[in-house]
Simulated scan of single mutants.
Amino acid sequence: MRVLHIITGLAAGGAEQQLLLTIRHLPPGIDCEVATLSNPGSVAAALRAEGVRVHHLAMRGNRDLGVLPRLIRLIRHGRYDAVHTHLYRAGLYGRLAARLAGVRVVLATEHSLHAGTIEGRPVSAGVKSLYLAAERLGSTTVAVSRQVAGTLADWGVPGQRVAVLPNGIEAGRLRHDEPERSALRARLRRELGLPEQAFVVGAVGRLVPGKRFEVLAEALTRLPDQVRLLVVGEGPERDRLTRAAGPRAVLTGERADVPELLTAMDVLAAPSVEETFGLAVLEGLAAGLPVLHSGCPALEELPADAAPGARKLASTADAYREALLDLATARPVGPLPRPPAVAHYDIVHTAARLGELYQRLGRRGAPALAEREI
């Protein structure tokens, strides 16, 4: 089965990384290529390094209608059995191009949708109308959580057009045996300028307002000198966050070695209240870290005992300062046991379920399952 994934860009973001992991772990017999409308960044390089063909459409902006005939030609020439879009702009242009090219199976994964925002931006009446018009061109919309499925229902998307298929984490790569973990921890702390005995608060994600990393920066200024902040990611909030956190913070920028960088941390903190899944939280748990978070739908949709190492807090500097001070004082020794939530969201399982969905839609040429997890 030949599948073309269309995505808005391929810089290092959650949706982009999820696409990389999914393609890496899809079952045999599914041949994937990727088309990026713009910004073929580090994830494009990673895909190419693994032998995945990546097409760059060189789209100049949201209203560059010239991308549509280029997409149609690409889809017709590639003779794909299915087209799968990711993110808002790709969903608009990709679903329309797929239909005009005669593709019968057209999916879209909704990675970041809330009642009033999509991909961190406010939803206007025009944006919502365009979204719903494009959605009707597809066979199925895949929601990464039941929360997203609920928002789609509130927007008027029929339940029989929605399939809930959660994101996944590469659990096997996120855990290191001793002494490998100790060696990585020591080496990375030296490279990053973090003292060996420091208590390191970690955060992973795009440096955008919705991640609320400024909460951690403010908390840091009211914690003992031994506490340091390590932020992995890049984005427009970098300068502001650097000023707010001061000299005890290290901002690494975009990195491909997140599983290794997690070994340099003593706790993972995620103060965002706008998550539609919560990949960073799950990655922290998989690495054996205690986790403080302010919103993780992936955990909230599981039994309470699925992630004993995670604690939910109000997204305020006071709440994080108090919790971090407790952890820094207690100084947990060694990684925590891997909780059930990690196995539940292993990418090996979620990619296999996506492969089953492709095959089912290919046979039926019809909508998927009625708002139930597959």
Score class of each variant (00 low, 15 high):
198 A>P: 00
175 R>C: 12
187 R>D: 15
196 E>K: 06
184 L>N: 03
198 A>G: 02
183 A>R: 14
182 S>K: 04
205 G>L: 12
194 L>N: 05
205 G>W: 07
181 R>M: 11
182 S>I: 01
183 A>L: 14
202 G>E: 08
202 G>F: 02
192 L>R: 02
189 R>I: 04
197 Q>G: 09
176 H>Q: 13
186 A>Q: 14
184 L>F: 03
171 A>W: 10
196 E>C: 00
174 L>C: 13
200 V>F: 04
197 Q>D: 15
195 P>F: 03
189 R>G: 03
208 V>D: 11
198 A>T: 07
181 R>N: 06
187 R>S: 14
178 E>L: 12
204 V>R: 07
181 R>P: 04
190 R>V: 10
200 V>D: 10
178 E>G: 03
181 R>S: 03
189 R>Y: 03
197 Q>F: 00
173 R>A: 15
191 E>C: 08
183 A>D: 11
182 S>E: 12
187 R>A: 15
186 A>S: 13
181 R>T: 05
209 P>N: 08
189 R>S: 04
173 R>K: 15
183 A>H: 09
205 G>D: 09
191 E>D: 15
193 G>F: 00
194 L>C: 08
170 E>A: 15
196 E>Q: 14
174 L>N: 13
210 G>H: 04
209 P>W: 00
170 E>V: 14
188 L>K: 05
